[in-house]
């Protein structure tokens, strides 16, 4: 857990097989258009991070992918199969091969740690009980939770709950894991640990990962590709290196926010009047 963050894996060559292909996804809530034609290409076996300010619809986008929220328009193709209401088989297949890590963990609070991890296997497979227990214990062991197996989620710390949610997500050996703000509310040390865990298990199990976050430095180190969601559209998708070099104004604003803050504070200290963008 305390090892330094691994260096990013090489980005697959362009034209490599797309595991997840999202085109023109639109979602409106009444008059409010949250997603206005979002595109994203996710190559197999990569970590793709969707960045964006708070409230730009990152979680809604991920929920559209997971099928929790139904998009109004657009197409989502998973491993070549279109996921839509009419294609129930493809959606069932998607659910079998995909896991979702919720921002608030969404652990079942009336079940113990071990029961939470065993639940997906118990409810979606015909694996014998003994094998379910073995696999659940193995997942707990991998995430250092073995000694807490008889406790309830409310008796665990925030970091442990996150690890438990990750154990539950990987126990089914998914091919795609969707991470919704996996580091929300964590301190920088634990944030690093979570990114470390994601990359470590992504390497170990070979799943494809789609993350949404606004933790820029960690995301750039841990991802093969990053995308920036702003104004209801994907403003950028490319490698972390390309993100660092991009002259796209929205990318620059997001990337250079720390420098902007530093400049603003320096100006304030000098007694200058500053008008923030939000005040305009």
């Amino acid at each position: 857990m305390s090892a330094p963050l691994p260096v990013p894996v090489s980005v697959p060559a362009s034209g490599s097989e797309l595991f997840l292909d999202i085109r023109g996804v639109t979602k409106r809530f009444g008059e409010n258009t949250v997603l206005a034609g979002v595109d994203l290409a996710v190559p197999r076996g990569t970590v793709v991070t969707v960045l964006g300010k708070s409230g730009t619809g990152k979680s809604v986008f991920l929920k559209c992918l997971a099928g929790i929220v139904r998009p109004d328009e657009g197409e989502i193709r998973f491993d070549g199969q279109a996921l839509n209401a009419a294609n129930a088989l493809a959606r069932a297949e998607f659910r079998r091969r995909c896991s979702y890590l919720f921002q608030g963990n969404a652990l079942l609070d009336s079940l113990t740690v071990l029961e939470n991890v065993a639940l997906p296997l118990e409810q979606t497979t015909q694996i014998p009980n003994r094998e379910i227990r073995r696999r659940a214990m193995e997942a707990l062991h991998q995430l250092d939770l073995t000694k807490h197996r008889a406790r309830y989620p409310s008796q665990l710390s925030g970091g442990m709950q996150k690890r438990l949610a990750l154990a539950r997500a990987i126990v089914t050996r998914p091919e795609l894991v969707l991470f919704d703000e996996p580091t929300a509310g964590l301190d920088p040390i634990r944030r690093n640990h979570v990114f470390e865990m994601i990359v470590k298990y992504q390497r170990q199990f070979g799943f494809t990962a789609v993350l949404v976050t606004h933790d820029l430095p960690e995301a750039l180190v841990a991802s093969d590709q990053v995308a920036l969601l702003d104004g209801g559209r994907m403003q950028f998708q490319g490698t972390p290196e390309a993100f660092n070099l991009s002259e796209n104004p929205m990318v620059r604003a997001f990337r250079d926010s720390a420098d902007t803050l530093r400049d603003t504070l320096a100006a304030l200290r000098r007694g200058e009047t500053i008008t923030s963008e939000d005040d305009l």
Partner: peptide, 21 residues
């Protein structure tokens, strides 16, 4: 409360039948 805390969504995303459970 389970709906509010996304526990039912979690069951759905893992492919479990929320009605059966």
């Amino acid at each position: 409360i389970q709906r509010n805390s996304e526990q039912i969504d979690a069951l759905e995303t893992m492919g479990a039948s929320t009605h059966a459970y």
